[in-house]
């Protein structure tokens, strides 16, 4: 018990890094995903193709590979070669990757709204942006809540991939402790930490779903 108490401060520090990456990724990738989805269903064929190519690329390759590429690969690219610190590099890779997944979720959501909703809005004089903001997206949010919830919980666990960038997130901190102390207890504590985070998210999403179900 004393041992557990003694490692908790370090593990909390690791958790802070994990949560930072998690929140920044969510806050950036969801709006980006919405914009991509709107482009994906827009009238411009070149835009639709470009975005579906993007989605195909980002969903078709491992996130780990993308992460390594942004961190170690980008600096070697001629002209635009940039070298980033580990945190911005991780954020960039995670946002680009998760935006692709969110794009697909939102696209499916937008396309499930009956065309009659757009037509009703149009006959009432609403323009495209009013129709999207006030009529389509609020209905989409309700539909996509379960898949977004899934994706978000996956992200909590995916953040552990950044241990390859030598960042001291929860997982790497844990591993260091295990190696230092020859004790596997930190693994169990880490599991509990991850569980608490995902449990909290599950709870929040359940509440959101209840809120949105009022019009059923």
């Amino acid at each position: 018990m004393d041992y557990i108490l003694s490692i908790i401060p370090q593990m909390l520090m690791g958790t802070v890094d994990t949560l930072k990456l998690f929140f920044v990724t969510i806050v950036l990738s969801i709006p980006l995903g919405i914009f991509l989805a709107m482009g994906r269903v827009s009238a411009f064929k070149w835009l639709r193709s470009a975005i579906s190519g993007y989605v195909w690329l980002l969903r078709g390759t491992p996130l780990m590979l993308q992460l390594l590429f942004v961190y170690y690969g980008l600096p070697f690219i001629p002209v635009i070669g940039i070298r980033m610190d580990d945190f911005p590099a991780a954020v960039l890779a995670f946002v680009l990757n998760y935006a692709a997944y969110f794009c697909e979720i939102f696209r499916a959501g937008i396309q499930s709204i009956p065309v009659g909703q757009y037509e009703a809005a149009r006959t009432l004089g609403m323009n495209y942006s009013q129709t999207m903001r006030r009529i389509v997206l609020p209905q989409v949010f309700k539909i996509i809540l379960p898949p977004v919830s899934n994706e978000t919980i996956t992200l909590v666990k995916d953040t552990s991939l950044i241990y390859v960038l030598a960042m001291n997130d929860l997982l790497r901190t844990t591993r260091n402790l295990v190696q230092r102390d020859f004790n596997i207890m930190p693994f169990l504590v880490a599991a509990v930490f991850y569980l608490v985070m995902t449990l909290f998210l599950t709870y929040m999403f359940n509440r959101l779903e209840k809120r949105f179900s009022r019009y059923d």
Binding site: A120, T123, Q139
Partner: peptide, 21 residues
């Protein structure tokens, strides 16, 4: 053309009410 077209209200076979309102 929007102003002229919206001089007409339309009622659809499928109602098309906004379900979230």
């Amino acid at each position: 053309s929007i102003r002229i077209a919206t001089k007409m209200g339309m009622v659809f076979q499928q109602f098309n009410l906004f379900p979230h309102m």
